[in-house]
Write a protein that binds this DNA or RNA. Structure first.
Length: 290
DNA sequence: GTCCAGGAGTGAT
DNA sequence: ATCACTCATGGA
């Protein structure tokens, strides 16, 4: 099926570190698993061509890529200085996806002190061993295992080489299957109380909670502070001085406004993916370890 | 061998 | 409240 899109770049959106389940194929298209379905998406300028295992992939794409969101309007609001302006111009078409809460939560629990490449490998291994196989046009993938499946198959989880994050994942899966927390029930909560609820889960601190809030619950005022954003903000806005995470968030929230989550993604995409040497070359704002 | 990666838990101040 | 340390794994 085909769909005309405005302000969407598959490359910027699928490779900026918010989703870990998309692979770029040799022809430039993307193959990925979302929920119980597989998708092959090819973008040519303003047109998406989608092959999938569901009927209405057009409607799916509108929801998943959040095409109902007026991106231009949001970008005008966060475009408050020359640095973010450059990032916005460079990463045009970067959108924040609407992702499923459990997989997002589990993925970012696994992201702790980890590399994107390794996070992808862990998610892939977990899915291959505990998920359901999904085939599409000669490609195959696996759905992400449910909390119940994680709890019931701890022995298998142990073989997935998750490192110290294994305990976090299993304990959080247990809390969910026990009914200690209802993920979907968090959807109605405002940002602050959503964060507090997520903190109760194992392996969920400020960064993971903010990623889940932003990528699964559409909390645009969430501003995840990871090592990269920390360096970027310190270099650009604090003259290379070391600043703690809380001050970085309060700065971002005030400086970029209630859509600061979008600012975070554009800064991350531009400075991390496009010109990382600008940030890493001087080890800006980092204390020398030991 | 050393350092780092989309951090969080723990225990000592 | 903040700080230093540690955690398992893979890649540069």
């Amino acid at each position: 099926m085909e769909l005309e899109v405005n302000n969407l770049s598959l490359y910027h959106t699928l490779e900026c570190g918010q989703a870990f389940r998309w692979d770029k194929l040799h022809d430039g298209s993307y193959f990925g698993i979302v929920g119980k379905n597989a998708f092959l998406i090819y973008q040519k300028r303003e047109r998406l061509e989608i092959i999938s295992t569901i009927e209405d992939s057009i409607n799916w794409a509108k929801i998943y890529f959040a095409l109902d969101i007026d991106l231009e309007r949001i970008l005008r609001k966060i475009d408050t200085d020359e640095y973010i302006h450059t990032a916005i111009k460079s990463c045009s078409g970067l959108r924040i996806l609407r992702q499923e809460p459990w997989e997002t939560l589990a993925s970012f629990i696994l992201s702790s002190n980890n590399s994107i490449q390794n996070i992808k490998r862990m998610i892939k291994t977990l899915s291959q061993r505990l998920g359901s196989k999904i085939e599409l046009n000669g490609h195959q993938g696996y759905s992400f295992p449910s909390p119940y499946s994680i709890v019931k198959n701890k022995g298998v989880v142990n073989t997935c080489r998750l490192g110290f994050r294994r305990d976090y994942l299993i304990e959080t899966a247990e809390m969910i299957t026990n009914g200690d927390i209802d993920l979907e029930g968090l959807r109605e909560l405002p940002y602050k109380s959503l964060r507090e609820k997520l903190f109760k889960l194992k392996g969920v601190g400020p960064k993971v909670a903010d990623c889940v809030a932003l990528f699964a619950f559409e909390k645009s005022e969430s501003f995840p502070v990871d090592v990269w954003i920390k360096r970027i903000l310190q270099k650009l806005y604090f003259s290379n001085k070391v600043v703690n995470d809380k001050k970085l968030y309060s700065f971002a929230r005030k400086h970029f406004g209630r859509y600061c989550g979008y600012a975070q993604e554009y800064l991350y995409c531009y400075y991390r993916l496009k010109i990382p040497q600008e940030i890493t070359s001087q080890k800006v704002g980092q204390e020398p370890k030991r």
